[in-house]
C-alpha cells in the first residue's frame, strides 16, 4: 500500500493508504483524529470540514494523494485547549444539541471569519449554509459566529 506524507495540525504524519482514500478516513482510521465527522460522503452536509491551507474544505471527497505539502488543520488542531474565539463563542452560546455536526460548523466558521472578520447577518447565513445541523441549532450558530466575530475584534 502506498504511503503519503501529510502535515496535520503542524505535525508531519505518514499515512499508509490507497491513493483514493478520502482525507476524512485517513484522519479518522489512520491518525485517530475522530473529531472530523462523516455525514454524507458527497460533500453536501459539511460535517467533515477541515482547513486545507486555511480554506474550509470537505475532507470526505479529498483523496490523500492530493494533499502532500498542504497544511491540514482539523478541529483537534484549531486551538490548544478549545480556546479559539469560535470555540469560545460556541461554549458561551451553548450551541450544540447532539453535537455531531459542530466540529464541521466550527471549522467553516473559523475559516470564514479569517476572510471576513466583520460579516453581516446575511453573510453569516450564506457562509454557514453548507453545514447541515440536523438538530436545527441554526439560530445559535448564527449568534455564535457573530459573537466570535466580536471576539476576534
Amino acid at each position: 500500500m502506498p504511503t503519503y506524507n501529510l502535515k496535520v495540525n503542524g505535525e508531519k504524519q505518514v499515512v499508509e493508504a490507497e491513493s483514493d482514500t478520502p482525507l476524512l478516513w485517513a484522519l479518522r482510521d489512520n491518525l485517530d483524529l475522530v473529531g472530523t465527522k462523516f455525514g454524507c460522503g458527497i460533500g453536501q452536509c459539511g460535517a467533515c470540514t477541515v482547513h486545507i491551507d486555511g480554506t474550509a474544505t470537505r475532507s470526505c471527497l479529498l483523496p490523500v494523494s492530493a494533499l502532500e505539502d498542504k497544511e491540514i488543520t482539523t478541529i483537534e488542531g484549531l486551538s490548544e485547549n478549545g480556546s479559539h474565539p469560535v470555540q469560545q463563542a460556541w461554549k458561551e452560546v451553548d450551541v450544540p444539541q447532539c453535537g455531531y455536526c459542530q466540529a464541521g460548523q466550527i471549522m467553516t466558521a473559523s475559516a470564514f471569519l479569517e476572510t471576513n472578520p466583520k460579516p453581516t447577518e446575511e453573510e453569516i447565513k450564506i457562509a454557514m449554509n453548507g453545514n447541515i445541523c440536523r438538530c436545527s441549532a441554526y439560530n445559535r450558530i448564527q449568534r455564535a459566529v457573530a459573537i466570535a466575530s466580536e471576539k476576534i475584534g
Binding site: G35, I75, L78, N81, K91, P96, A103
Partner: peptide, 9 residues
C-alpha cells in the same frame, strides 16, 4: 459535554 464537543474529542 460542551468542552469535548467543541474540541472534537
Amino acid at each position: 459535554d460542551i468542552d469535548e464537543i467543541v474540541s472534537g474529542k
